[in-house]
Design a protein around this nucleic acid. Sequence first.
DNA 1: CTGATTGCAAACGGTTTGCAGGCTT
DNA 2: AAGCCTGCAAACCGTTTGCAATCAG
Lengths: 143, 143
Amino acid sequence: MPETLRSFRELCARHGIAVTHQRQVLYETMQGMYGHPSPEEVFEAVKQRIPSISLATVYKNIHLFVESGVFRELSMHHGTLRVEMNDVPHHHMVCSVCRKVTDLPDGEFGAPLLQTAMPGGFLVERVSIDVIGVCPDCQARPN
Amino acid sequence: MPETLRSFRELCARHGIAVTHQRQVLYETMQGMYGHPSPEEVFEAVKQRIPSISLATVYKNIHLFVESGVFRELSMHHGTLRVEMNDVPHHHMVCSVCRKVTDLPDGEFGAPLLQTAMPGGFLVERVSIDVIGVCPDCQARPN
DNA sequence: CTGATTGCAAACGGTTTGCAGGCTT
DNA sequence: AAGCCTGCAAACCGTTTGCAATCAG
């Protein structure tokens, strides 16, 4: 009956997912953490409210949240090491379906940021811009 | 004596690393591959010229190339799943030393890209901008 | 000659999966 | 009642490490 449960139910309804206790606590815990904690860190935090929760459940539900649009992935290309061999300044188009990365000519879009003072005296080295979306191949593909 | 060896020697001298055969073949192979192949894919490609090369050597040298500035890392936050829980449009400052990610208010910088037609009919969903550099903490730290 | 580099195999760490029992709808 | 969800343990997969032999400077 707490207000938080009411709104979590609404959130789940909006995103078409079922309401479970671990789901709700996971969601609330993540919302309450600063920055971008790793699944392990989230797991540790959630355990304080549900000591019996398993790491697998944390992973399954983080993925569910991402798939259903509750959260978004911070980086489309985590999980494997990729390097930039192209010296010419450019950006990237990343397909959210097949994850393929294509270079996007023109580095101009990053220029304004290079000339902007960063909060806290953060020392800028370079700017990386990813345009995330669906590549032509994946648009054409049946599924 | 081929020209390629001459220029590879110069490249290594410039970046302060030793010249080895596997290093040279790795470099040439990577330069000749389209896009951003994974270490496994690079390994398979290099094996065609050096069948006895090991995956460990590929990893070690890709890291060496990145550390010495020959190549750059495509994504600063690969390796573990991170999600975005902040609904307000913003960008990220990523520390290249400690890899901490800090939100950077103001989504305006991405706007021009959202209104730009992408080559090949790539369907844009969102734009993700990372400002990569050194955070205040790491600037202050001795090392 | 001395230290760096290679290839191998084993270790690692983060993530995923299969399954049986329990909870949602 | 039917199916989704949970927790557990084992499997996975990309990456790293330790080591002895070999190579570069």
